[in-house]
Design a binder for these strands. Structure first.
Length: 301
RNA sequence: GCCGCGGUAGCUCAGUGGUAGAGCGCUUCUCUGAAAAAGAAGAGGUCGUCAGUUCAAUCCUGACCCGCGGCA
């Protein structure tokens, strides 16, 4: 029955961890040592001109190692998991064809899952007109509608989550069928390396990094995005740095508050990232480069 | 020293004569094309202290302590 054994599949290394944990550096080090190339898995670093705010690696930090899935779309446009999956799959293929080791590195867990677990999304692209229309209804109304049209999906969906309800109804309205059950077929032979940093230490790093990035011109970066035509609404939606700095630039809050709120939001975000990965048995949590190298070494043999 | 206002959850504050709530924060969790998104659940309080009135006080009365403002 077409069951592929692990040894027949391409080998892909995944480096994951919360924001500010040092993923990018680790991925570069591993790449240099094992002849690899990096595929970013970050839902904000895909956008052009969003460099400091998204914590993108600099040209210098890349140390000559090629990086994929950075700067692939204009921030005025929307990018989705599904877009990510397609482009990342292509990148894996390209790297493997060169005889190099693909290293997926990033903090967007959903993107990593889509790629590595081979999540099959229903082929229905977002219909913003429909979404805007459904947005006007209450959560209860949407849920009742879903119960009527697709009782099975209604059973396991988060009944109070408007975004998910709207997506489910969108799929039904386009396909005229119930939402298909999610399919997962891991296409690669994978090694998951997670960076294990104590939360307290991580939060210190987050704060220092925030100061540094402000000095490096993070506020200017947001201002110039706005000048390039990225709306305040869009910046709000992009979250964290872009959201809080946009609010500050509009004069809605003062500098101190913006910085304070941004700092707690980044910390909360890092906790959510942890929650996502906690309990995933596939991840090897490492403390240093040596442990990572040992893991990769035995993986590629 | 006097007068006024206040002291309720980690923070900002509602509120009631029958032992308490909100927002934010915190903890945990979910994840089907927005995922830095969108949601869910939970833990926190002898209601400043002591005494009195009352069947019953966080709420009424008194004293005291603390903070803020004004007058001296």
């Amino acid at each position: 029955m077409g069951i592929k054994r692990n040894k027949d599949k391409l080998k892909v290394v995944v480096v994951l961890g919360p924001t500010s944990s040092g993923k990018s550096d680790l991925a570069v080090e591993i790449s240099k040592k094992f002849n690899g190339e990096v595929i970013s898995a970050d839902s904000r670093q895909v956008y052009k001109k969003m460099d400091i705010g998204s914590g993108k690696v600099t040209e210098e930090e890349m140390q000559g190692v090629p990086h994929y899935l950075l700067d692939v779309v204009d921030p005025k446009k929307r990018f989705s998991v599904s877009d990510y999956k397609k482009l990342a799959e292509k990148a894996v293929k390209q790297i493997a064809e060169k005889g190099k080791l693909p290293i997926v590195c990033g903090g967007t867990a959903f993107y990593i899952k889509a790629l590595m677990d081979g999540v099959v999304f229903p082929k229905v692209s977002p219909d913003w007109t429909l979404r805007r229309r459904l947005e006007k209804k209450t959560t209860e109304e949407l849920y009742q509608e879903l119960e009527k049209k697709d009782p099975q999906r209604a059973e396991n969906i988060d009944s109070k989550n408007k975004v998910r309800l709207i997506r489910a109804l969108e799929i039904i309205s386009k396909t005229k069928k119930p939402v298909p059950k999610v399919k997962e077929e891991p296409p690669y032979n994978s090694l998951y390396i997670g960076i294990d940093v104590d939360q307290e230490e991580l939060e210190e790093r987050i704060e220092k990094r925030l100061d540094r990035r402000i000095e490096e011109g993070m506020i200017e970066e947001v201002r110039s995005l706005k000048e390039d035509g990225v709306s305040w609404e869009r910046l709000e939606e992009l979250g964290l740095e872009y959201r809080w700095i946009a609010r500050y630039l509009q004069g809605k809050i003062d500098y101190e508050e913006a910085k304070e709120r941004l700092s707690t939001d980044i910390k909360k975000f890092s906790k959510r990232q942890r929650t996502w990965w906690r309990g995933d048995e596939r991840i090897h949590w490492i403390k240093n480069l040596k442990e990572a190298e040992d893991l990769v070494n035995s993986f590629i043999k």
